[in-house]
Design a protein around this nucleic acid. Sequence first.
DNA 1: TCAATAGTGTCTGTAAGACATTATGGT
DNA 2: ACCATAATGTCTTACAGACACTATTGA
Lengths: 219, 219
Amino acid sequence: MVVVRELFPLVGVDVALFCVDDDGLKVLLVKRAEDPYARHWALPSGVLKPHLDDSLMAAARRVLAHKVSVELPHVAEVSTFSGPTRDPRGWSIATLFYALLPKDKINALVRNKVEAVQWVSATSTRHRLAFDHEEQLQAALRALRSRVEGDVLPLHLLPEKFTLTQLQKVCEAILGRALDKSAFRRRLKGSTDLVELDEYERGPQRPAQLFKAREGFTF
Amino acid sequence: MVVVRELFPLVGVDVALFCVDDDGLKVLLVKRAEDPYARHWALPSGVLKPHLDDSLMAAARRVLAHKVSVELPHVAEVSTFSGPTRDPRGWSIATLFYALLPKDKINALVRNKVEAVQWVSATSTRHRLAFDHEEQLQAALRALRSRVEGDVLPLHLLPEKFTLTQLQKVCEAILGRALDKSAFRRRLKGSTDLVELDEYERGPQRPAQLFKAREGFTF
DNA sequence: TCAATAGTGTCTGTAAGACATTATGGT
DNA sequence: ACCATAATGTCTTACAGACACTATTGA
């Protein structure tokens, strides 16, 4: 096996699973049960299993489905980390994905979990994570932000039906800054990704119109 | 070895090496000498050699240095392609990089080449390439364009000293559309990546001021 | 003086930020 | 009537595209 390691690198996937709640943007961490980095917090990760996985992204989905039992969220590739020292077991490759989960599915997720998991603020000062996962988390965050800066709507982080105010809060949580309501909504007028519904969110004040993502929308 | 393939995927790198000449944006293709896809045109590629490479990007540089003897150009990751069928030898991973080469280094490159190589228009209608390299080429082109659209200057495609008109031509070749000179230069005024020189490119008309990239500039 | 390209000025429409105002529900 | 939030309007500024114009060299 040691010989094999010199010919073939360890191949795995890491996933930064994001969600937005009232406290802002969160990312899921898991407590590693085994070495290396046993009992350290880390991004959910796993090794590629060629007989099970049809692609690296499929491996990422399998890892998520295994570590956290939940409907599969939106997954996108960020980049690939590699080198002889990032994993003490030897030359390794890890392709990083980010995944987006709507807030209303968080509870089901955490409840069914067997290992220790934790939602932590994704924007707060750095954590102490296993491997190069701190760097990976920053890379995933950059990728997420650059898409939102590029005027793509992070609808995968919202429930099926949502108000424009909810959408704005999610964007603000990702970008880490306040957005102007008027300008934000003006931009949304020209978006083909939003579908206007004839339903309204009722509360102790004026009802807000509900929207949903366009059929086939992908972040 | 067959058994190994079921446990460990084939790991390699592919490189889309771009340059810009008077005919527009070009990409380097090599004629494959060995199976699979012998005698097919393909992007320069190679398998990862853990004992030689310190990262996937280093592997990409090694592949370039090996296939085309030239000073190492700028290299950046695009994305990673994977799956059981993209290579007939079995489950495989290929991390795609693009590389940028200034026009004035092309000649030295082609001359020293042993295998058959070819510069083809990167923007013309699709080619018939080995593996999934057509898709990869499109992905590399998208990545390149999105950076230039994002107002990053592709200075790695220019000689050390260049005129603003040359810079504009390079941007136009990448984007595939004409840019307005006035607006283009107005934007450049605010760029910290350009350094004004006290030299001028002389010709049969008004001389043009020369510029160079900021120290430490990276595309 | 002319050709050719470098470099600048001006006008206009679009879009964003800031901020005020109106609208509409519940209580 | 009042509160809270939704939704819209207005003003200003910044910037990009279009296009005309001026500047400077060699021939």
